[in-house]
Computed example of a mutant assay.
Amino acid sequence: MTLEYDLFWSFRSPYSYLVTPRLLAFEREYDVKCNVRPVYPIAVRIDGFFKQVNPMWPPYLLKDTMRVAEMEGLPYAWPSPDPVRMDMKSGEVPKEQPYIHRLTRAGVAAAETGQGLAFLKEISSVIFGGVKNWHEGDHLKEAAARAGLDMDALDRIVEEKADSLEAVIAANEAAQKAAGHWGVPLMVFEGEPFFGQDRLSHLKWRMEQKGLKRR
């Protein structure tokens, strides 16, 4: 029996980017299915979040994510532009967001094709992999193609079905909260949350108790 888990994932989360290749390898090696459930970043979901955050956290996050990327052998740089437009000094996040809505809705549309995890991997590799102006030219189109998808077609769905995609995102965020955590990446198996890129081994351990098998 194929074991399934839900993956709550954000296009602004470096840790989401860093864990995704391992999640793909996990799915290739084991009889497991990842249900991709994109959510908006915490900067968008929680009003004023970055106005209250400890100022030591962002510098540590950058150091830690650089370390993890080096350990995993992944290219890494903070996105240019940032998927969430915000004032880094004040923490102010404007309501108008030109990038993150498109990305998150496209992630939902990709998940509905069954290619969600591959899409997350390829798109985040462009965003966090050191590609400047990743939103311009054919960067996203070529990344989507590597995942077996058509970015133009996804963009049409993003425009034509915005309301229904937003409803899915809202449902994902509600399910994430119900599982017992607010952060990403969050893997949830049989109601048990596993938060963070360093919890994949814990997820695998729990699934092995439930009969996880190699392919």
Rank of each mutant, 00 (worst) to 15 (best):
A144T: 02
S164K: 15
L23R: 03
S164Q: 12
E92V: 12
D150W: 03
Q197T: 07
L154F: 01
R214E: 12
V44P: 04
R37N: 11
Y15E: 08
A144Y: 03
K213F: 10
E192Q: 14
M56H: 12
A118C: 07
F11W: 05
D87P: 02
G191F: 05
Q52L: 12
K161P: 07
V158S: 01
R146V: 07
L18D: 01
I127F: 00
G48L: 00
F128N: 08
K141E: 15
K161S: 13
S80D: 13
V126Q: 00
V44A: 06
H202I: 08
I46Q: 12
A178V: 03
D198G: 03
Q115R: 15
Q197I: 09
A109L: 04
G114V: 05
K89P: 06
V131G: 05
M1V: 10
Y17F: 04
W57N: 11
E112L: 10
A69D: 00
V53F: 07
Y15G: 10
E92F: 12
L24H: 08
F26L: 06
F26M: 08
A110Q: 02
V44T: 08
G137K: 05
E208S: 09
Y60R: 09
A25V: 09
D31F: 13
K89N: 12
F128D: 07
M151L: 12
W182F: 14
A110Y: 03
S10L: 06
E4H: 15
M207K: 04
A118N: 05
I157Y: 00
E159A: 14
D31N: 14
A179C: 04
W134Y: 04
S125H: 12
D64W: 08
A153E: 14
H139N: 10
V188E: 01
Q97L: 06
R102K: 13
T65I: 10
Q97C: 05
E112Q: 14
E70H: 13
E166L: 13
S13R: 01
F26E: 02
P41V: 04
A170S: 11
I127N: 03
W78D: 14
W57Q: 13
S125G: 15
P83L: 04
G129D: 00
F195I: 05
N35H: 13
G148P: 03
W182N: 13
W182K: 10
L165D: 02
D152K: 02
S201K: 15
S90E: 10
L200A: 04
V53N: 01
P59G: 00
K63H: 10
Q115K: 15
M151R: 10
L24V: 15
V126H: 05
E142R: 15
D64Q: 09
R206P: 10
E160G: 08
W182Y: 13
F128S: 06
R102D: 10
L24P: 06
M56W: 11
R206V: 14
I42F: 13
G73T: 04
S164D: 14
E160D: 11
I127A: 03
M151W: 15
V184S: 14
L7C: 04
L154Q: 01
R45D: 08
E136Q: 13
D163P: 09
V126S: 04
H135W: 15
R37A: 06
I100S: 01
G180R: 04
D6G: 07
D31S: 14
P75D: 12
F128Q: 08
E122M: 07
K161G: 09
A145N: 01
D64R: 07
R67P: 09
V126N: 00
S13L: 03
A178R: 04
Y17W: 03
P58K: 01
R85H: 08
R67T: 08
E27P: 06
